[in-house]
Every structure is written in structure tokens, then in C-alpha cells.
């Protein structure tokens, strides 16, 4: 049992690999587009956020409400899509969204630029220079997106458990290597790991609800959970202590799976973001 995240460069297909893994392992598949749909329903369409970040990176950086809401929505979508802790997700930053979840195998797929250029030329009838310019442009846009939203370098191999070069492996071979990796102890969800994963999902639900709520979304709050007990940490303004406290408790109690709530909040004059 594991969650497999597949990240790729431009013109490197992951659909067939995701479906091969799903077939071999019996895991559900979630695409980035499907996960982003949940963010769009909350009023944060990815394309809109991307345009805003390109235009005003200082305003729509990692700390902005929209970006935090977008990440929380995606993280929540991934958690809810996993069945018993099993999922194949193919999208840009699955490993980063799930970095606190247990038994996540984060995989990046790469291929040399020249083979991607040839692929694009064959598929779209483009000239070599146009194909190269297009690939570089999309690669760069993805890198800026990951840097802006997550503060990481998308190409850094340290972010992934495995990087496979698809010039060296066919889809079937890559599928077999990844399938075997999920059988290693580090990527098997034990009963305790599964309980940790339920906590991860619960914390995700609470964090998303805190960001959606008009009374708490501007506060600097973060929830984590341990066996159903939710702890909310962060900062909030001292002038609204009772109202904010009651609102947070209400939000946590209404989250599916929460049994208990504790607040560890610094109340100060300038609390919040």
C-alpha cells in the first residue's frame, strides 16, 4: 500500500504509466486536472492563480491566501482520493503536497531534450526550433510555478525518491521498477501508518476549512492531528479571542473524523497574516 506521485517534464507522457501502475497494483488514479477541479470549485482556478503569480509574484507568493487555499484544496483532494492509503497521482507537485504523509513514493520522469523535441515535431509538425522553444517555455513556466507555490526547484533530484529516464526505460519497464519499489518496507503502509494517514487527511480537512472560513482564513493557523485529536497552532489577535476560539473549535468539530480539539495559539495584538 502506498501513494505514488508521478511528476514529469514537458512532452513526457505519464498517462500510460499511471494506468499501468493502477492496473498492476489495483490503485485508483487521480490526475492533476481532476485535483485542480476541487480548487477551482473553491474559487481558485489554477490558471487564474498562475497568471496572477506571473504578473505579481510578490503578492501571490506562497504566503498569500489564494495560494494557501489552492494547496490545501489539492492536498485534501489527494488525501480523499486515496483508498486505504493507495493512489497513483500524476501532476506537478504531488510529492510536495504529500510530504508529511506516510508511505509516499515520489517519482519524477525525465527524458533528454532532443528526444522530447523529436516527439513534439512528430506529433505537431513543428520545426525543431519552434519545438525546442515551446518545450523550454513550458518547462520554465512549470519551474516558476513550483518555485512560486512551493518554494522548491522542480528539477532538484533531492525532492524525489526515484527519477527514471524514459529514454532508458519503456513505460512497462518503468512500471515494473516502480511497482517493485512500492513493495519495499519504506513504502508499505502498516496499520500504524494507515492511522497516521487518516490523521494526515483529518488535518488536511481542518486546514482547508480554516482557510475557507471568513472568520479564520486571514489568521496564521496550522492544524495537525494525532489519532483523531486535532491541535491547532498559530497566531491570532487578542481582541477577538473568544470569537476566534469558538469558531476554530466549531470548524474542527465539524470535520469528519475529529474526536478532540486543542488550541495552541499565541494571542497577540498583531496576530494573523
Amino acid at each position: 500500500m502506498a501513494i505514488i506521485t508521478l511528476n514529469r517534464g514537458t512532452r513526457i507522457g505519464t498517462d500510460s504509466l499511471a494506468h499501468c501502475l493502477s492496473r498492476e497494483l489495483g490503485y485508483p488514479v487521480l490526475s492533476q486536472e481532476a485535483a485542480q477541479e476541487t480548487a477551482a470549485q473553491l474559487g481558485v482556478p489554477a490558471k487564474d492563480l498562475q497568471v496572477r503569480m506571473e504578473e505579481r509574484p510578490g503578492v501571490y507568493g506562497r504566503a498569500s491566501l489564494l495560494t494557501r487555499l489552492y494547496k490545501a484544496a489539492l492536498r485534501n483532494a489527494l488525501g480523499e482520493a486515496a483508498q486505504d492509503g493507495n493512489l497513483v497521482y500524476h501532476g506537478v507537485a504531488g510529492g510536495l503536497l504529500l510530504k508529511d504523509a506516510p508511505a509516499v513514493l515520489s517519482v519524477r520522469l525525465v527524458a533528454p531534450l532532443y528526444s522530447r523535441i523529436q516527439d513534439l515535431m512528430a506529433a505537431e509538425g513543428m520545426s525543431p526550433s519552434s519545438a525546442e522553444a515551446y518545450i523550454r517555455e513550458v518547462d520554465d513556466a512549470r519551474a516558476r510555478w513550483v518555485s512560486g507555490v512551493y518554494g522548491e526547484d522542480i528539477a532538484d533530484p533531492a525532492l524525489y525518491d526515484l527519477v527514471l529516464n524514459l529514454e532508458a526505460f519503456s513505460v512497462e519497464e518503468a512500471c515494473e521498477v516502480i511497482r517493485l519499489a512500492t513493495r519495499r518496507p519504506e513504502f508499505i503502509l502498516t496499520d500504524e501508518g494507515l492511522a497516521d494517514f487518516e490523521d494526515f487527511k483529518l488535518a488536511g480537512r481542518v486546514n482547508l476549512a480554516l482557510l475557507e472560513d471568513l472568520g479564520t482564513q486571514t489568521l496564521d493557523l496550522e492544524a495537525w492531528a494525532r489519532r483523531g485529536m486535532v491541535v491547532v497552532t498559530g497566531k491570532a489577535p487578542i481582541g477577538e479571542t473568544r470569537e476566534v476560539r469558538e469558531r476554530i473549535v466549531e470548524i474542527v468539530r465539524s470535520a469528519n473524523g475529529s474526536r478532540e480539539v486543542r488550541l495552541d495559539i499565541q494571542w497577540s495584538r498583531g496576530g494573523g497574516t
Binding site: R108, V110, A111, P112, L113, A155, P157, A158, Y160, D161, L162, V163, L164, N165, E167, A168, F169, E173, E176, V177, L180, A181, R184, P185, E186
Partner: peptide
């Protein structure tokens, strides 16, 4: 990573797991 066929990160993986995964790749 595009200079290599396979990159393996030891941040979560034990030496034994890394060895087993590379061996599997090598037997393709």
C-alpha cells in the same frame, strides 16, 4: 538526472531497498 538512467534518493530508502530497486532496473 537526465545524465542518468535512474536516480535513487536515500532520504527515506534503506541501502538494501536502494540495492533491490537498482537490481530490478538492471534486470530489465
Amino acid at each position: 538526472p537526465s545524465l542518468y538512467d535512474l536516480t535513487v534518493n536515500l532520504r527515506k530508502m534503506s541501502m538494501a531497498s536502494a540495492c533491490r530497486i537498482i537490481a530490478e532496473a538492471a534486470t530489465q
